[in-house]
Simulated assay, not measured.
Amino acid sequence: MSHLDLDLRALDIFVTVVEAGGMTAASQKKGITQSAVSQAVGGLEKKMDVMLMDRSVRPPALTPVGRTLFERAKSLLDTARETSFLVRAHQQRSLPRLNVGMVDSFGTTVGPHLVRELMDEAVEWSVWSGLTKLHFKRLFTREVDVVITEGSIPADERIISHRLLQEPFVLALPVSYEKPVDSLEELIEDLPLVRYSSRSLTGINIETHLRRLGLEARRRFEFDTADATLAMVGVGIGWAITTPLCLLQAKTHLPSIRCAPLPGPAFSRSLMLATRRHELESLQKMIGEKSREILEQRCLPEISQFAPWVIKEILVGDG
């Protein structure tokens, strides 16, 4: 047998079995029969004359040599995918399809300009927004190629990431509320808090901040998008804790909203750009550069019109 006689498809199935936790789950994920999964793993063992999985236990566990192959196979498959991307990109001068996950506020404000600037880099573009937590998961399951997501990126050798933006949380108040805001306690007494969904990272971070301050606001209104949340503020239902980019996303409601600094300790959120390592790293660099350019040349000037005091607190890029 040649030492280079490795079946990439069989390796991919083997890695999926390990990551999915079994052959049944792997067959469902790959859309093939369980018999085909078993044959692929068995074929690898026969070709290499080793036992990769201990089938005497349930579920089957990796043998030491199986663990070695699993770790090496992931790197080998990443290299193969990167090579495929590069060859197709060179031949077609663009990727056949690019799947991008974007946090909603970024997708609405920066996203259209970003896609217009880089539209020739892919024949087809598919942009997903929605809950941030799903974006990163989809990066690992290969449902998306690039994510622009909120919060820190877990340390993982398979991922390369950069910060695009750090922005502070601020207050959004109805224009009819004219009192100066010296404390959140007083504001909670005067008006209901309009919350971001507790399923969103923004909502979770805001609740964590309030608990850290020992504050409790009655739970009455909760929405899953910045536009809906700030629309409620605009009609005078209550107040919200939000960010400048979210306010820009909901700019149709800005004439009815007063933006003010958050009293007490400051806290902020970061938007991160991430891709799988060894895949699309040159495109990631282009996306990062164009995103920062759009933020500086388009978004910050617009934000300065309704909250000039906040510009000095917004950091674009890693610096």
Rank of each mutant, 00 (worst) to 15 (best):
Q284N: 06
M23G: 09
E216W: 09
T68P: 00
V310A: 14
P265R: 12
W309Y: 12
N99C: 13
D104E: 11
I153M: 03
V57L: 05
E124T: 07
K312T: 10
G288V: 00
L171T: 05
R88W: 06
I257T: 02
T33D: 05
R116V: 01
L76S: 02
V146Y: 01
V316C: 08
D5T: 00
K312Q: 15
M53G: 01
R9M: 04
L114N: 12
H3R: 06
H253P: 02
D12Y: 06
S270V: 10
V15H: 14
Q297T: 15
V123S: 07
G21S: 03
T79D: 15
D190P: 08
A226L: 01
T243D: 10
S126F: 07
L187N: 07
F140G: 05
P180Q: 12
I294H: 04
K290A: 15
S38C: 03
V17N: 07
L262S: 10
E185I: 05
A228F: 00
L215Q: 13
P112I: 10
G21V: 00
T229G: 05
S2D: 15
R220G: 00
S161I: 00
V175T: 15
S282T: 10
T79R: 14
G111E: 02
V123F: 11
S270N: 09
P154R: 08
P64E: 08
D224K: 02
Q28P: 00
T108K: 11
V103Y: 10
E289G: 01
N99A: 15
L247S: 09
P112R: 09
S84W: 04
K312H: 11
L215W: 06
T109A: 11
T16A: 10
L69C: 04
H209W: 12
T68C: 00
G151Y: 00
L165W: 07
K46T: 13
R97K: 13
L187W: 06
V37D: 03
L118T: 03
G111L: 04
M23L: 09
T208I: 13
Q166G: 06
E121Y: 09
P263D: 05
L230S: 06
E143S: 11
A89F: 13
R269E: 14
